[in-house]
C-alpha cells in the first residue's frame, strides 16, 4: 500500500477524470464535427445538451474554435486538459516526470493546434499523447493503489460520458466492469446503495436507458466526499 493522503488521492482521482474527459470528448467531438460539415450544421447543440454544458456558442465555427481552444471557457477541451495537468503536477513524485510529460506535450500540442491551418489533424496528436500517458502510467506509477485510484477516476468519467452520449450498452457494460474491478482494489469510501443501484440498472441490459437519470445520479453520488 502506498503513502497517499486525502489530497493526493483526490489528485489521483481527478487526473484520471480530466484526462478521460479530454479523451472521450475529443473523440466524440470528431463524430459531431463530421456531421456538422454537411449533415447538421447545428449538431453541436445536441452535443452540448448531451454532455450537459451550456450552449454559449454563436454557431458551428464558434463552437469549433471555443470548445476546443478557449481557456476562458471552463468546459473547453483546453480547460479540461489544463485541469488534468494541474492535478498531475502536484503528484509528479507519484506518477513520475515521464508520465506527466505526456500531459505537458498534449497541452503544448493543443496550444499549437489552435494556430494551425488544419487544427483537427493536429488534435490526433493530442489523443495519441493521452494514450501514451496511460501507457506510461501503467509502467511508471509504481504504487498499485495510486494507479487504481487514477483508473477509478478514468472509468467513472468514461461511464458518465458514455451514459450521457448514448454509447452502445456493450461498451457501457464493459466500462462498468472495469470500474468495479478497480474499485475493489482501492480504499476510497463509496456509497454501497449507489453501487447496488448501478448493478441493478445495468442488469437490465439495453433497457437500462429507461433509468438513465437514476444511473447518472448514482454515478454522481458514488464516492463519499
Amino acid at each position: 500500500m502506498g503513502i497517499i493522503s486525502v489530497e493526493r488521492a483526490d489528485h489521483l482521482f481527478w487526473i484520471g477524470r480530466y484526462t478521460e474527459r479530454v479523451f472521450t470528448t475529443l473523440v466524440t467531438f470528431f463524430d459531431f464535427y463530421d456531421q456538422m460539415i454537411d449533415v447538421d450544421l447545428e449538431a453541436y447543440k445536441d452535443f452540448c445538451e448531451k454532455v450537459a454544458i451550456p450552449d454559449i456558442y454563436r454557431d458551428r465555427e464558434d463552437f469549433n474554435r471555443r470548445y476546443l481552444f478557449d481557456r476562458t471557457d471552463p468546459n473547453s477541451v483546453c480547460s479540461n486538459l489544463e485541469r488534468a495537468y494541474d492535478n498531475g503536477i502536484v503528484i509528479r513524485d507519484e506518477i513520475s516526470s515521464y508520465t506527466l510529460a505526456y500531459l505537458q506535450l498534449a497541452l503544448d500540442h493543443l496550444e499549437a493546434a489552435a494556430g494551425s491551418a488544419a487544427p483537427h489533424y493536429d488534435l490526433q496528436q493530442v489523443i495519441d499523447y493521452i494514450h501514451a500517458f496511460w501507457g506510461c502510467a501503467d509502467d511508471r506509477v509504481d504504487d498499485e493503489e495510486a494507479r487504481n485510484i487514477m483508473k477509478c477516476g478514468k472509468y467513472l468519467e468514461r461511464l458518465d460520458l458514455y451514459l450521457r452520449l448514448g454509447y452502445p450498452f456493450r461498451l457501457i457494460e464493459k466500462e462498468y466492469s472495469k470500474f468495479v474491478n478497480r474499485l475493489g482494489r482501492v480504499r476510497l469510501p463509496y456509497d454501497p446503495v449507489c453501487k447496488a443501484k448501478l448493478d441493478e440498472i445495468f442488469a437490465m441490459g439495453p433497457w437500462w436507458t429507461e433509468r438513465r437519470g437514476e444511473a447518472l445520479s448514482a454515478l454522481w453520488n458514488f464516492f463519499l466526499r
Binding site: 503513502i3 493522503s5 486525502v6 489530497e7 493526493r8 502536484v90 503528484i91 509528479r92 513524485d93 507519484e94
Partner: peptide
C-alpha cells in the same frame, strides 16, 4: 524518493 506533501497532509 520523498513524499511531496502539502501542509494539509
Amino acid at each position: 524518493g520523498s513524499v511531496l506533501c502539502m501542509p494539509q497532509d
